[in-house]
Design a protein around this nucleic acid. Structure first.
Lengths: 248, 248
DNA sequence: GTTGATTTCAAACGGGCGTTTAATATAATT
DNA sequence: AATTATATTAAACGCCCGTTTGAAATCAAC
């Protein structure tokens, strides 16, 4: 258990604070206050703020046993099952609210705004993650598809997952608090991204209406859509969510 | 023209600096240095740093003429053409390197880490953007699909676009500088996301291999109802390990 | 040219930050 | 018990920040 000694308590508190506010805005004073230790302890145990951040990040990086290794799969697993497991794991980590919730937030922060001193750990982590996803995609994508194209597809999948987490404040502005808490859960988002991605890859039926004859462009567009699409629903965008926190 | 007087030069410089470093890390001193004005000018013209940020953000928000209004479309435009135009416009704004490159970066920053004083402008902007995307999707998605599902699809599309920009440093770590500069251009990424999204919606052929039936599910003929059968919730083979890492 | 308002300027203020220090308390070793 | 090593503490240092100030410069109108 790392939260017994001073050093461990500092790292834990640092992880929380840095994940919440970032490296620069997260202050040593708050970290020490939260850890219940003296201000000078950080410099005593870690030298300076930067090295404390690195230590916290190293702890966050391999956070928990990385379960998604290629050889972990049962031999008979279908590609869509593997893909689903990958996305599910991603959302579980991104959205988890349990005790060590800060690890993924810290990682996410490094993705979107890298600090110069963690590049090596980051590269290692993402190479592993990407390689794993690529190995799954390889079973699905045609062999003649160029590598850059496979990469684009992989990042499209990861990007969707990360976005739902990273942009959640702005998403809440659009769909309202209720819809978000109800439908942007691990399970619901996993279902959605899986459906969308698998459809794009041809492993599941497409999400659009299948009115036409084949999956070519469908020409039954405007009339049908205008007739059946309830326009009211768009007004529910405005969705009476009001939290104002404005300053005087 | 805003860049002639002192006030305008300050706003321009503030936009750049805030877009690069964020509200907190961007200092008034650097802004004034870049604008070539005295340090006290910010407080003379704007009162304080926060109001300067708001002014810069207001200028960034309607950056350029917003071309993507629903009524702008030619009446005969197909849904996939509209979708492509939406994605293309998104990437053009996200990846542009021309003179006012900072507007979208500032907006992107507010998406991923909102400052409390721009919420209103943000909400207005994103409601408009989302409503527009939804109106396009409505022509494609079956009318009985619930609203939350449409929202998820919309955010999946936007999320892909934003991610390619926001995570570009980490993406570069994985694919290398050459592949990124060569294939992560506005046109190449527009092509990719369009293909992927349209395939997911059934407006284009899927990206996966279509030849063999080795491990591929066959959806050659599916009725519409099949598209909405919920995925199995619990994949038993998915990892169960949620333990925290314990330090030795 | 004088007056009066507006704009620029150099300098400083107070506060929060990361970091250091030197003294003290605790533990370990002999 | 005495001595050394280790850990904690309160206080301070120096730095950069946003902000303020009061005087100098610039401009406008008569």
């Amino acid at each position: 258990m790392s939260s017994d000694d001073t050093r461990g308590r500092i790292i834990d508190a640092a992880g929380e604070v840095f994940a919440e506010k970032g490296f620069r805005a997260g202050t040593i004073r708050e970290i020490c206050r939260r850890a219940g230790v003296n201000l000078a302890s950080v410099n005593y145990y870690f030298g300076d703020k930067e090295h404390l951040y690195i230590e916290a990040f190293k702890l966050a990086h391999p956070a928990g046993p990385e379960p998604n290794l290629a050889q972990d799969w049962p031999d008979g697993a279908l590609p869509n099952e593997k893909l689903r497991a990958f996305i599910h794991e991603m959302f579980k980590r991104l959205l988890r609210v349990e005790s060590p919730a800060w690890q993924m937030r810290l990682l996410q922060r490094e993705i979107l705004e890298p600090t110069p001193f963690c590049m090596d750990v980051m590269r290692e982590y993402f190479l592993a993650k990407s390689t794993h996803l690529m190995s799954v995609l390889d079973e699905v994508l045609p062999p003649e598809m160029p590598l850059y194209r496979r990469h684009q597809i992989g990042f499209s999948i990861i990007g969707q997952c990360v976005y739902f987490r990273a942009a959640s404040p702005v998403i809440r502005m659009v769909i309202g608090e209720r819809e978000q808490s109800e439908h942007h859960t691990v399970e619901s988002l996993t279902d959605h991204v899986c459906e969308f991605v698998l459809a794009g890859l041809g492993l599941a039926p497409p999400l659009g209406k299948t009115a036409g004859d084949d999956n070519r462009l469908d020409f039954s567009r405007t009339d049908q859509a205008a007739a059946f699409t309830p326009q009211r629903k768009h007004e529910s965008f405005v969705d009476e969510q009001e939290q104002d926190r404005v300053k005087p």
